[in-house]
Amino acid sequence: MMLNSTVLSTSRLSPNVKKLDFEWNVDVEPGQFIMIWSPGIGEIPMSVSHLGNPKSITVKSYGIVSSRIMELAPGEMIYFRGPFGNSFDIRKGKKLLIGGGSGMASLHPLIGPGVHGLVAGRTSSDLLFSEEFEKDKVTLATDDGSVGIRGTAVDALRTIDVDQFDSVYVCGPELMMYGVMKELGKYSAFVQFSLERNMKCGIGVCDSCSIDGFQLCTQGPVFEMETVKNMREFGKERLNISGRRIKYNL
């Protein structure tokens, strides 16, 4: 079913990232996503970055549909299907969130008092929501060194004593998460990854988002370390938008 609502407000978080707020009175769990439709143009998956009511999505411009969604003004209609997917299993104890680029949108609902963050991106404007962590509880990393550590999320992770955390939640580009998985494998914390693949149908039939036989849209996108570690495709290969197998160059 296609749902719709009215955009209540918008705010620009960085030169190419915008937050859109809209009324939607249903329960959405942290980590779930919706498919946003721009009528006559196309449909893309979006994490629900702010739960409660109104809800928000955090849109980064990367293609024709996301650009059109970013142009939506208060009062305009927003169309969507969902919510889809499973959610993060939020454990008691000390938490570390590791977000790469727009992956922070999916982790945003987990930010709270005492929660630590590792926020990474190519450059300073890619670092979403880093200011929402308590000052002494956030580590930043950028590829270009414009802010924080010059390096990757894995470089930044090596500066953190992971043993102090009971649970770790990770979302970002696949190769970043692959590196993070290798590094976190040294520790015993409970770890969950929110994976990312080409999302098309959202309802577990089209096979575009599948990884190792799991459908991200219905069985994911959140998977535990044990599952991810045993995946043959994760971090190694994926299908492109046509279904052609692409090997990552590692």
């Binding site: 143009i41 196309g42 449909e43 039939v205 089209c206 492109n240 938008i241």
Partner: peptide
């Protein structure tokens, strides 16, 4: 085709994927 390629309704599913395939 660009999504939406599916539309689930009450008791049915409509789809137009567009013969997406790798060759």
């Amino acid at each position: 085709y660009m999504p939406p390629v599916v539309f689930p309704g009450d008791g049915y599913l409509l789809n137009a994927i567009g013969l997406t395939n790798p060759g």
